[in-house]
Design a protein around this nucleic acid. Sequence first.
DNA 1: CGCTGTCAAGAGCAGTGCTCTCGAATGTGT
DNA 2: ACACATTCGAGAGCACTGCTCTTGACAGCG
Lengths: 235, 235
Amino acid sequence: MTEKTPAAGSIRARVRAEMIDEIKNVARRHVANEGAALSLRAVSRDMGMVSSALYRYFPSRDELLTALIIDAYDSMGEAAETADANVSNRSDVLARWHAVANALRAWSLAQPHEYALIYGSPVPGYAAPRDTVGPATRPVVVLGAILADAYEAGMLTEAGSPPVRNPLRREIAVLSVHIGAKIPPSIMARGMIAWTELFGAISFELFGRIDNTIDERDDWFHYQTRAMATFIGLR
Amino acid sequence: MTEKTPAAGSIRARVRAEMIDEIKNVARRHVANEGAALSLRAVSRDMGMVSSALYRYFPSRDELLTALIIDAYDSMGEAAETADANVSNRSDVLARWHAVANALRAWSLAQPHEYALIYGSPVPGYAAPRDTVGPATRPVVVLGAILADAYEAGMLTEAGSPPVRNPLRREIAVLSVHIGAKIPPSIMARGMIAWTELFGAISFELFGRIDNTIDERDDWFHYQTRAMATFIGLR
DNA sequence: CGCTGTCAAGAGCAGTGCTCTCGAATGTGT
DNA sequence: ACACATTCGAGAGCACTGCTCTTGACAGCG
């Protein structure tokens, strides 16, 4: 059995891991500049290698792209988590919501192409594999925790929200459990709508949908997140 | 001056227009199947032509893509307009809102790749030219009209909405004028948020963001649009 | 020390967008 | 009706892409 990954602790494994990191870094730089049209040959040129050598580390261009996507998910998730954790008054769920929302937007504005990679239209001929579902949920988990804390503090009531009927209700309940938020479906649904609006707003801003229309982007974003906070019932 | 467009009414102009239509149709079919990775050569093969001949009609692949994008905008805008027009009771703004929202989603589900073309991440190395701004606003105009009718009927009040402060307020006011909706900025802002959530929801569904999570997609979409209708104040 | 696994390099294939040139067909003006 | 100008399709060719396969060299391990 040739062409296998070397043993875990071996020296070869270490230099191989470093090589993979290096490739990802160069590729990330290319994505940051050119977008999803990532060229393996260009990456290999930047590394002083020949293109075929890259295939020792990534079986295909899509695999390399997938690695970048996973990293992007993780990076964004971490940004959301630290933003939430940095709010010292944990019971101030409104501040936490705004902190996370602003962090998600800031992350996206800082690396627009990586955002497009994970929240834009799927790359043609490329289907996001299963490996990406884990990291992808991290921002959602953060928002779910805020929602759960608010609910536990008695801040959110089901009153006013239309009831969620089965079988949709059951699916939303499963989702709540999955992200570890103990909240009733109608409240979870409100959170999901806010989540949808949030990423809709970021996408609109990043993909040029409000160009030549809204210049006061910080204000507009803050207005939206404030409105959605009210929609959820945070205060 | 060679290589010019022939005179308006001439026979050549007609066959040329037909040719352009034919090319666009074939290209549209390819986009529907393969997505934004449109290949000029594949299109030309399908037409029994040689690839260089296509350049007689479109100066570049991007120009062909732009033509498709404009058509997609128009098609979607028309879908929204007819859906709105088909609601006979014009004062039933809630029904009109749902009709338009459902029409926009249905259009998007029917031609997902074309949706991705216009509402997904911008194609790498391709910037949407100015020609696309006109058709792009048609769905927004429809929603604006519904909003304006609701406001005129006294259904919407500014109460409850946080005030929009300048200079953002001014930008939103300009936008209202631009789409022909005579409504105060805070109400316009609510409509824009609903618009953002609406396209966020469609993007999430189309781009696989709710795969393996929500199967009851019709119900979920309807729940969202109902919630956003309440958010706006439609009833 | 020698074997074996790992690696980079190179050539090559099929595909891409795009340019340029060259005849042929075709409409227009005299 | 004829000749000119214009428009067109075809073909070759350039630079680029992802990817495969072979070859030869290096280096870690037993």
